[in-house]
């Protein structure tokens, strides 16, 4: 087994980047039927290559494709899973750019059935860029650290569960979450198989559990925000537990030799979610948690194989 070297992450972009005007024009043309899918993909490729080059020039520690292929950060779920309906709920956001906003997520109106991987069309380019570019900031020849963002299952409960519609197929919010957890678990397992080394779970709706307005709304619909929030933490652990991303490196000898270890990094910044992150990622030599107390030198690291690898795996 080769020794792992911890590479601290100090500077990174969280997820999406502005789509260049040419890509926005291409998206509009595609929507109008004036452009075919392969031409749109070519424009996206162009935007991703340019964005990755710029991120490297700037010196960010982790590269991302900027979610250039997505309409929104979470629409990959409804685009890839049957059972969503073309209807959305309104959500209220606070702070700059806040206000009531119709979410881009869709409500659930049938039993969920995955049709394709959520990120199937995103992974090949970022993987090939990462393995063809010399390492950043690691030694030459190592894959550049890059990440893929995946919406956490919990996002699709407040946005997806509509009483009177969804409860014909799922008796309650928890039953819906069970199916969503399974879908995201499969996605993570698949991403790890593809050689993706850093998976970020996005869960901005966790903030709703702290917001008086959302808490009141949940209580009115018969949900207990505190019990639900505790449940979410446990479910999140279940998303990564027993996937290869959650196992120790030496139990994964089938990964390519020069492969950084998988890192699962939830975006939500809450005490509870961070502690579950800590549990999920401790065993893989990397963590985004500020609560970590074990021996690793840094809590936010990507782990890379040492420059010299031993042949005694």
């Amino acid at each position: 087994m080769h020794r792992a070297r911890l590479m601290p992450i100090r500077a990174e972009q969280v997820g999406s980047l502005l789509r260049p005007p040419a890509l926005l024009a291409a998206r509009a043309a595609f929507a109008d039927g004036r452009l075919d899918l392969s031409s749109l993909r070519a424009k996206e490729d162009e935007a991703i290559r340019a964005a990755v080059t710029r991120q490297r020039e700037i010196g960010l520690d982790v590269l991302a494709d900027g979610e250039m292929r997505r309409y929104s950060w979470l629409t990959g779920m409804a685009d890839s899973v049957d059972g969503f309906m073309p209807d959305s709920v309104m959500l209220e956001w606070h702070g700059p750019g806040g206000g009531p906003e119709k979410t881009t997520a869709r409500i659930v109106g049938a039993t969920l059935r995955r049709r394709q991987m959520l990120t199937a069309h995103e992974v090949p380019l970022i993987t090939s860029l990462a393995t063809s570019l010399p390492g950043l900031p690691g030694p030459q020849g190592f894959p550049a650290p890059f990440k893929v963002t995946v919406p956490a299952p919990s996002n699709f409960v407040p946005t997806g569960f509509k009483p009177g519609v969804t409860d014909r197929f799922y008796k309650d919010r928890d039953a819906l979450l069970t199916d969503l957890v399974a879908i995201v678990r499969e996605e993570i397992a698949w991403l790890v198989d593809q050689g993706v080394t850093y998976i970020q779970l996005d869960a901005p709706f966790y903030s709703h559990y702290l917001d008086p307005q959302h808490r009141a709304a949940m209580k009115m619909s018969g949900a207990d925000p505190d019990a639900e929030f505790s449940g979410r933490g446990r479910r999140r652990q279940r998303v990564v537990r027993r996937t290869r991303a959650g196992r120790r490196h030496h139990r994964r000898p089938h990964l390519p030799r020069q492969q950084p270890q998988p890192l699962v990094h939830p975006r939500a910044a809450t005490t509870r979610s961070q502690s579950s992150c800590s549990r999920a990622s401790r065993s893989i030599g990397s963590c985004s948690s500020t609560t970590r107390t074990d021996r690793a030198p840094s809590s936010r690291c990507v782990s890379f194989p040492a420059a010299k690898t031993s042949s005694s795996d």
Binding site: A11, V14, L18, R19, S72, G97, R267, R300
Partner: peptide
């Protein structure tokens, strides 16, 4: 040593993007 920085999430959570260049 346990800290790192990043911008707040998403310059373009939706494709149209936020109001900056």
């Amino acid at each position: 040593d346990h800290l790192a920085i990043s911008p707040q999430c998403g310059f373009a959570s939706i494709a149209t993007g936020n109001l900056l260049s």
